[in-house]
Nucleic acid binder design. Structure first.
Lengths: 154, 154
DNA sequence: TTAATAGATGAGAACCATTCCAATGTAATG
DNA sequence: CATTACATTGGAATGGTTCTCATCTATTAA
C-alpha cells in the first residue's frame, strides 16, 4: 500500500517529532501521507485492518490526537457526525460540500500571504499569540450541483 | 434581560426568515443577539431557565440547528467537547485560545475583501458553488500568556 | 372567531463517536 | 539485557446530540 519512500519519509517525520516509533503510528501516518481522502477513524481502521487486524480504535484515536498535537494532522468536520483527519504536509485549506460532505484540498499562489495577513491582523487586534489558523469554504461540489439540478446563474 | 429594541429586532428577523414565531425561538434568538459570549446549549438553558423553566434541551438544539440552517448563527468548537453558538449579524471571524478555549470575535477594515477573495479563488479552483466560509485563528489569549509565563519573543 | 393543520415543543430514551481505564506489551536507553 | 517510561488493547463509561412520539400551538383559511 504505502511505498518504501513513504515509509522512510514517515519514519523520519516521527523521529523528527520525537515520537516513539510504533508499527501503529508508522502505518497510520503512512496512510495519511499517501492518501488524499480525508478519512475518519473508521475508514482508517477498515483500510489498515489487513495489516494490523488487532489495532484498537483507542489506538487510532490516541495516535491521531498525538499527530494533531504535533501539528502533523488537522481535524475536519463535514457534518456527518464524525471527525475527518488530514495530513498537513503543505499549507492548504478545504472546500466542503454542504450536500454530500465531500472535502477537497485547495491552495493557490498567494494563499500563504493571505494566511499570514490574517494572523498578523488577528494578533494586533486580539492580543492573542497566534499559533495557527483554519480556513474552510462551504458550497456545493460540482457533482451535487448536477445532482440537484442547480444552475450557476442562481 | 433583552431590551424591547432587541425583542422587536429579533421578531422581525424570525419573520423575515419565515420562521414560525414561538416564545422559545424568540427568547433564544434575543439571547444570542444581545450577548457576545459564545454559549453552549447548557449555558443558554441556564440563562433562560428563569423565563422558560420547562424548555427542553431538544428544543434548544432544534432551534439552534434551525438558525444555523438559515445562516443566522454559526457553530464553533473550542475543544471543550461541546458546540458553541454565535449570532452572525455582521461578518467576523474568531480567535480561539488553545489553552482555555476563550473565543473572541475579530474583524477589521478589508476583512470582507479577504473573505470574498478566498471564496472567488476557491470557486475557480474547485468548481464548488460557494455559499459561505469559516475562518478561525488559534493561539494563546492574553490571560493565558500571562498565566503560562510566556514572553512574546519566544 | 373558529376550525383545521402543519409545524414546534418536551421528556426521556437511544445513539454513537470519543474517552477512560487497567492490564499487558514494547520501544528506547545505556 | 534490564529497566522504564510510554503505547496498545478491548471493553466499559461518558456525554453531547439526536430521535421518538404524544401533546401543544402558531398560522391560515373559512
Amino acid at each position: 500500500m504505502a511505498s518504501n519512500a513513504v515509509m522512510e519519509e514517515t519514519l523520519q517525520i516521527l523521529k523528527d517529532h520525537k515520537l516513539r516509533v510504533t508499527p501503529q503510528r508508522h502505518i497510520i501516518l503512512a496512510y495519511l501521507v499517501s492518501h488524499h481522502n480525508h478519512p475518519t477513524v473508521e475508514i482508517i481502521r477498515d483500510a489498515l485492518g489487513k495489516e494490523l487486524p488487532n489495532m484498537g480504535a483507542s489506538t487510532i484515536y490516541n495516535t491521531l490526537n498525538t499527530f494533531v498535537d504535533h501539528h502533523l494532522v488537522v481535524e475536519l468536520q463535514n457534518g456527518d457526525g464524525s471527525t475527518h483527519y488530514d495530513y498537513f504536509g503543505t499549507p492548504h485549506y478545504h472546500a466542503i460540500c454542504t450536500n454530500c460532505g465531500r472535502i477537497v484540498d485547495v491552495t493557490y499562489p498567494g494563499f500563504s500571504d493571505t494566511e499570514k495577513g490574517l494572523e498578523k491582523k488577528t494578533a494586533e487586534i486580539s492580543g492573542y499569540m497566534i499559533s495557527g489558523n483554519h480556513m474552510e469554504v462551504y458550497g456545493l461540489c460540482p457533482e451535487c450541483q448536477i445532482k440537484l439540478g442547480i444552475k450557476n446563474n442562481e
